[in-house]
Simulated assay, not measured.
Amino acid sequence: MTSYGYTATGIALRTVIMYAYYPHPYGYWRDRLLSVPPWMAKARYDIKAKVDDATEKEWKGLSTAQRRERVKPMLRAMLEDRCKLALHSTTTEAPIYALMVGRHGPKLKISNPGELLPVGRVKLQLAATGEGPGVIVPFIPGEKQQDLFFGTPMASLAAFMSNFSDRPVLDRTGLTGQYDFVLSKRENSPPPTEHSNVSASDPDPASIFDVEGLGLVLKPAKGLAETLVIDHIEQPSEN
């Protein structure tokens, strides 16, 4: 995504569909898009979509996350127009990671709504990117790689880690409060980046983040997850 539109080179149409329709824009979850025609597996496209001047002016005051959410319906309209895409959503059993409490119990601090957040640091609202309530203060390059979370329920933490996973992470901790905690990145782990499509050989989020340090564990499991089913799609014509 560009600041005021969407640009991609050599991208698979499947990736564009996942970006446009799923709440977590970069998680490439296998088996979550069904009835994919064979030609989509090999075809790659260059996309350059720019908003009009009035929309660009409106978007200048928005955060990257807010602009990203506004791009999604535009991409859906483009797919429906250029590819005649029609699909529907269903709930199916799919591979997941279950976020659970470890054997010795959680190591989380119950959030104090009146507590001040760190001064002079970037603060990201998890709700702005679809994860739910909570605030994250990302680490600064050169510092120890750990993110600070404030007022964050476990469902939001699970949704956050889904962005770095090949499958959804679902909250099965049974914890209902909002918490302050530090999520550390494991030493020598690959850099967690939302902008790369993960594959079967990529690490699970437990190999990236030290969830055990929070008294939590991630376990492969089965669970109900939203799945998209393509009813109709055509190869897009060139401009």
Rank of each mutant, 00 (worst) to 15 (best):
222 K>P: 02
209 F>L: 03
192 P>T: 04
194 E>I: 12
209 F>I: 01
227 T>A: 13
206 A>K: 10
214 L>A: 09
189 S>M: 05
230 I>G: 07
198 V>E: 00
211 V>Y: 00
199 S>I: 00
201 S>V: 13
192 P>C: 05
212 E>S: 14
213 G>P: 09
201 S>C: 00
192 P>H: 05
217 V>P: 00
225 A>V: 12
198 V>D: 01
220 P>M: 07
189 S>R: 03
197 N>D: 08
231 D>W: 09
219 K>A: 15
210 D>R: 07
194 E>Y: 06
227 T>Q: 15
191 P>Q: 07
189 S>C: 15
230 I>A: 06
194 E>Q: 13
193 T>D: 09
209 F>T: 01
198 V>N: 01
200 A>N: 09
216 L>S: 11
191 P>K: 10
217 V>H: 01
208 I>F: 06
210 D>G: 08
212 E>R: 10
191 P>F: 13
224 L>R: 15
226 E>S: 13
228 L>S: 05
204 D>A: 09
194 E>H: 04
194 E>S: 12
205 P>L: 02
217 V>A: 14
219 K>I: 09
194 E>R: 12
217 V>N: 01
233 I>D: 11
224 L>E: 15
200 A>G: 04
205 P>H: 03
228 L>E: 01
189 S>V: 03
193 T>G: 10
216 L>N: 11
209 F>K: 01
224 L>F: 14
199 S>H: 06
192 P>I: 05
227 T>N: 09
196 S>A: 13
205 P>K: 00
229 V>S: 01
215 G>F: 07
222 K>F: 03
189 S>Y: 00
223 G>D: 12
221 A>W: 08
210 D>Q: 11
212 E>K: 13
203 P>S: 08
200 A>R: 11
207 S>A: 14
202 D>G: 03
227 T>P: 13
222 K>E: 07
191 P>C: 00
231 D>T: 00
213 G>D: 10
193 T>K: 09
193 T>F: 03
220 P>Y: 07
211 V>A: 07
214 L>Y: 05
204 D>Q: 13
189 S>P: 06
215 G>H: 10
221 A>Q: 11
196 S>K: 08
227 T>Y: 08
196 S>G: 02
224 L>V: 05
218 L>N: 00
199 S>Q: 04
228 L>V: 03
